[in-house]
């Protein structure tokens, strides 16, 4: 599985939506399931999955999956 597919799957699992409905352009604005609480859970899940730690300031207002991927890349994670 590619790293790109993996991030989408993590997002889909946390939001409990089919992975097909999560693209790099999707975010809290396009997916009603992406609430602020789910956003937090996503952050915690990504930390567990990638072994990284975020400052919430970095990820608080990330608008899309693509932007999240960019933040992960700055942490040296596969993009």
């Amino acid at each position: 599985m590619s790293a790109s597919a993996q991030l989408n799957e993590l997002v889909a699992a946390v939001l409990a939506v089919p992975v097909t409905s999560v693209t790099d352009e999707d975010g809290p604005a396009t997916l009603p399931e992406w609430t602020s609480l789910r956003h937090l859970e996503l952050v915690v899940t990504l930390e567990e999955a990638y072994g990284v730690s975020f400052a919430f300031e970095e990820v608080r207002s990330v608008p899309t999956v693509g932007a999240l991927r960019a933040v992960l890349a700055t942490k040296g994670c596969a993009r």
Partner: peptide, 12 residues
Amino acid sequence: VGFAETRDAGRL
């Protein structure tokens, strides 16, 4: 086993 997968399973 993991926390996230157990939580996701519980939601489903």
